[in-house]
Amino acid sequence: MAEVTFNDIIKPENLAYTKSKLMTNNVMHYCPGCGHGTAHQVLAEVLEEEDLQSRTVGITPVGCSVLMYNYIDVDFQEAAHGRAPALATAVKRLMPDKFVFTYQGDGDLAAIGTAETIHTCNRGENILMLFINNGIYGMTGGQMAPTTLDGMKSSTSPYGRNIATMGSPIKMADIVALLPGTCYVTRQSVNTAGGVRKLKRALKKAVQYQNEKRGTCFIEVVSNCPSGWKMTPVESNKWMEENMFPFYPLGDIKVPSEK
């Protein structure tokens, strides 16, 4: 048999993976190795595969992902810092047949927007809240976040987070899981192919539950911030596995009962 050449393999019929058609051609502004890009792409894949483009309204936060609307080809609203769940509440109430998601970082969702987060989950709004937790304020230059780990250094905790004076890192997924309004709460990651594929399955469940009007779906993605953590992307992923995952363990926290 003749040797299979590179050109023989790279034919459309042999395609195994390419980025979603819902990803625009804009080059993402994220730092090299940042998990935001990966999370965007999984989300875009799910929106494409579930044929949701024409009925999706996304809400972007203030933080690194403020410009997310440049990257995924669906309708977007840009919220004030922390307020995405309030916008999403109104969008879903006024247009119940749309697929509505928020995308927020830890400063946005777990500090300034805590009230909106808790109450939106408590009302059980039929939306998906996607929460990227990298334990730091990335966009403003690496300040301490509500999710910054005990002892972790940041530009506003230069000697490490001191729990006695700065409080403990907050586990938002565990908190919202206590509220009756949430139907599905899970914690995922995007640093490995396996992690990305699990996140994709979680997102598909969230689409299903939103279609079934089961309540709020809350998906936390424990992610990295190579620039804010002052590490290479590969180092940051390793550090995340060793330090973030023990405190923010991956897996489902709450799943809906079968119908």
Binding site: R83, A86, T89, A90, V91, A115
Partner: peptide
């Protein structure tokens, strides 16, 4: 017509933003 009691004035005006944007 949807009527909703928000958790704060801040949330209420941002709900208005979300609705108006639709």
């Amino acid at each position: 017509m949807v009527v909703l009691q928000a958790e704060s004035e801040v949330a209420a005006i941002n709900m208005v933003y979300g609705g108006a944007a639709c």
